[in-house]
Design a protein around this nucleic acid. Sequence first.
DNA 1: TTGAAAGCGTTACCAA
DNA 2: TTGGTAACGCTTTCAA
Lengths: 350, 350
Amino acid sequence: MTVTLADVAARARVSPATVSRVLNGNYPVAESTRERVLRAVDELDYVLNGPASSLAAATSDLVGVLVNDIADPFFGIMASAAQSAIGEGASGRGGGEKLAVVCNTGGSPARELTYLTLLQRQRAAAVILMGGSLEAPEHLAATTAKLAKLAEAGTRVVLCGRPPVTGDANAAALVFDNRTGARRLTEHLLGLGHRRIGYAAGPGDRTTTRHRLEGHRDALAAAGVPEGPTVHGAYDRRAGYEATAELLARDPELTAVVAANDTVALGVCAALRERGLDIPGDVSVAGFDDLPFSVDAVPSLTTVHLPLHEAGVRAGRLAMGTEEPLAGGLEQVSAELVVRGSTGRPRTRG
Amino acid sequence: MTVTLADVAARARVSPATVSRVLNGNYPVAESTRERVLRAVDELDYVLNGPASSLAAATSDLVGVLVNDIADPFFGIMASAAQSAIGEGASGRGGGEKLAVVCNTGGSPARELTYLTLLQRQRAAAVILMGGSLEAPEHLAATTAKLAKLAEAGTRVVLCGRPPVTGDANAAALVFDNRTGARRLTEHLLGLGHRRIGYAAGPGDRTTTRHRLEGHRDALAAAGVPEGPTVHGAYDRRAGYEATAELLARDPELTAVVAANDTVALGVCAALRERGLDIPGDVSVAGFDDLPFSVDAVPSLTTVHLPLHEAGVRAGRLAMGTEEPLAGGLEQVSAELVVRGSTGRPRTRG
DNA sequence: TTGAAAGCGTTACCAA
DNA sequence: TTGGTAACGCTTTCAA
């Protein structure tokens, strides 16, 4: 049968309470008994029963990290950084490690709520929500309510890359400056002389999509340049690929395309190449995110760099309570313009 | 205070046992009572206590998915597929959903063991280990022992992309045919006329590294072509970038480079471009994995395609017990050669 | 510094 | 079909 704490206690000739104290290390225990207990643990190959422990302590070692798309390195990088930060702080019950687990919502509000319920059920120590969220009012309300309940039950809530929900004061929030980043991206293209710029946007109902699009439009408006065509689609390659056909159909004279993120940008590039158009000769492509692979993939790409790793680490620390959130609970992560290769000035096409 | 099952029972005027039965749905309950209970659950906004449930039932809804690098889409794609497959089978306790969580080991054996212990502690329903493993005997032994203990405690163990450990009969294993895939990749280059082929390999002590390298050498041996330089490094871009300098230093006349995976291949490409070498004119690059982005990124790349999505789904189903493992517990996932763009025949360089 | 014992909230067995 | 009630394995006062 499985070894229990009582077995360890018997073997170490102490009470269960003492074993528990040794394991949790939050209590004074004589060094000699401590050693005896630890030896017994080793000899019996004892593993703490998590559920029992969590039940008694009314909290668990679980930290949930919700991401929109685990196959997208954008989230992978942040999640990885958060997990490292969470793994660092070893001081909890039963050995101290927190179990940082990432849950893939696939961008679906329903699955997001399901995961939140599951984590609530597990009495998770903390929950990190990564990436933009849907803006549908009913979903927002449901999420807000759920998060409030989690916070109320003692679960730390951290938002990373998504705007804080109204009235949700007890969640720390790290927001990306999507507007400014997007504005810079477009300003850069305008500075090169581009006047006919298409936009391959993300899904219409997401915060990131809206904010990036707003920044793009701000830049155009400020320069007095008329807005070019915009096409919405998923945050993936195929969407970029398909959007390109549509954009060129709407304006065959485009000299530049801004993509909602790097993955979309790659799809745009693929479509352009297929049509025999040079990048950035015939058409310049700019993207958001600056995923590590795009550096090598498309050397001529202009991107906006989000410090994903740093944001992830910070989110992890906030979740651990290792670091306190700023007063007001909101901090802005700035995007930085990165130009990889050729300048890509516009030229007329035949 | 938090609502308990007893509260629901009181409100529905039934016994706690009945509420439990309704919630788990594995027991006959009169439709009328059932509705009454469900209504009470709703009205009280009751959420099952996971730890208590797991303690009593001696198992949990948790399914752990261990990956070597969550920032690598190779794992992201598999993990995503596995999570979908796991989410599908809704029939467990308390609503039925399983909580599929991915844990990032970062390729570290220590973290791998830590996570396994954590999952063991949580009485996880299943554990999926994705990706190649370290071949150090002591780590292998430790892992084997841990997996045996998990299996013994009723946790389903699935290996995906890693060879089964000796004597570990109770783990279902999905192995990638890395050898054949790598052989095909090199055969393709040989078929194009390449005779001086460098190899940018992964870390020396990993199964995937060894198998792919073996396939590469098999192809060379069969063709009677002498082996070119090989450089080991991590499975990341930088490693590919750095390996390229070393490979070219060892043989400046290389006409082709095989990379241990696509990410490495991108690093190789970056290094080649930086040296003013055309791809695939001066040097052809071939990579393993076929990540979705490489298609657009380097259209001239030759890759070996692993059906990551399908493998992930299968792994998920095995973890759920929805599908039975093949007799012997071992199934092979074949790699398929994919030629993206130019043929890349060798040409002499000045 | 240590021990005794009362929960923690479910599940599942045994009756009814 | 339902109820009563021991577990389940740990944490945590309260005493000693």
